[in-house]
Amino acid sequence: MKIAVTTPQGNVGRHLTRMLIRAGVRPMLLTRHPENVPAALAAHVDLVATDSREPGQVVSATVGVNAIYWVDPPAESPDPMADYRRATESVVAAVEANRIGRVVFQSSVGAEKRLGAGEIDGLAETEVALDGCRADVMYLRCGYFFTNLLFEAESVKTGLLQTVQPVDAPMSWVAPRDIAEVAALSLLNHEWSGRRVQAVHGPEDLTWTEVAEILADELGREVRVERIADEQMREQYLQAGMPPATADAVLGMSTGLREGFVPEQERSIITTTQTQLRVWIRENLMPLL
């Protein structure tokens, strides 16, 4: 079985690649920068220089591929939705041209809304497009990544986190490694077929208040959280250099899911994974502080 992995150096991909290797698979890594793959890893994979937003490149790279782990790469242009549409064109073209039989797509909680969730709308468009393909497709509806806290490292140092979400509203938080584990098992498992949605909710739902308390407990100093206005957050994004459309898309991921949103799949033994936030903080965030 020939398995292709996109964004193999990303938060999920770097774990997934190693899991597949340990399972005895020699995965094909599609990456714009194969030179950045460590030599020790490169010896166990097939590297193909590929831009996931270039359909022709993706089609050429995936000839003979049986299964693919697809990630829409983060938006880079002033028009984020156009970036997502280009990535969608790429995966659909590859699946159809090369008759790829199985796709595991890294989507997000909120994609089930289909519209009104900011940048997540781009993932929803990919889901809809893949629904029209003849391949067996699994949509991993992932919760809020622990790794998003890495972008908040300076805020954690100052002891003040800011969010536009209600600070006591619970939501799913998940470690990227747990997503990789679900992805690896799904790629290697031949017992499922058709269209399947698989939520990856992490070990427990957490509020921002609880996250701040866990951070304070692990770091041994005060960390608190405050809710700020949408416009204030948008202005912070703009000051950080985001184009206006990107700022709106990123903000929309929070505002679009805060009013009465309930994930399509509830928390259960099927959607719950193991890694606790405080363990991730010790291993990944504290060394940076």
Rank of each mutant, 00 (worst) to 15 (best):
P73Q: 03
N11S: 15
E218F: 06
A4D: 02
L130Y: 07
A229G: 12
L140Y: 10
L289Y: 05
V104K: 05
I68H: 06
L130K: 06
V63R: 15
F261Q: 02
L160H: 08
F105P: 00
H15S: 09
E259N: 15
Q239K: 10
Q276C: 00
L277V: 00
A175C: 14
L219W: 11
C142Q: 10
E181D: 12
R85Q: 12
R102Y: 11
E152A: 15
L251F: 03
V174C: 13
R134P: 09
G24Q: 01
R227A: 09
V95G: 06
P203C: 04
P74D: 10
R221L: 11
R221M: 11
T272L: 08
F151V: 02
A216W: 10
A135Q: 02
A124H: 06
P34L: 02
E152F: 12
N98W: 04
Q276W: 08
T163Y: 14
I228V: 12
G56S: 08
H190R: 15
S77P: 04
R85P: 02
A97D: 07
R177Y: 15
R234A: 08
G132M: 08
M253Q: 14
D72W: 02
G220V: 00
A61S: 03
W192V: 01
V137W: 13
S77I: 00
T273A: 05
L285D: 01
F146W: 10
V211Y: 13
R86S: 15
R22N: 13
A43T: 12
A245H: 07
A199L: 06
E218R: 14
E154A: 15
Q232S: 14
K113T: 03
I120F: 12
E210D: 11
V164C: 15
V95K: 06
R102I: 00
T207V: 03
A94G: 05
T126F: 11
T163G: 13
R258G: 01
R282G: 14
R18M: 05
E125A: 15
A23N: 06
Y144K: 06
R102N: 06
D217N: 12
L161G: 08
F261D: 03
V12S: 08
S254I: 07
D205F: 13
L160R: 11
A40I: 05
I68K: 02
R22Q: 13
A75F: 13
R102Q: 10
P263L: 08
A180I: 02
L161D: 05
Q232I: 10
T17L: 05
V5G: 04
H15A: 10
L20I: 01
K113Q: 12
N98T: 00
A94K: 00
A180N: 07
R141G: 07
M171L: 14
T272C: 07
E125M: 15
S186K: 04
M286Y: 05
V279Q: 15
E54D: 14
A67D: 03
A249R: 05
V197D: 14
I281V: 14
P73A: 07
R278L: 06
S268W: 03
L41T: 03
I3N: 00
A61R: 04
I270W: 13
Q239T: 05
L150M: 11
T50C: 14
A153H: 07
G110P: 07
H44I: 00
W173H: 09
A93K: 00
E259W: 09
G202L: 10
R32Y: 06
L185P: 03
D205V: 02
A67I: 01
A42S: 12
T207P: 14
W280K: 00
I68F: 08
A229T: 00
Q236N: 09
G256I: 02
A40F: 13
G202Q: 07
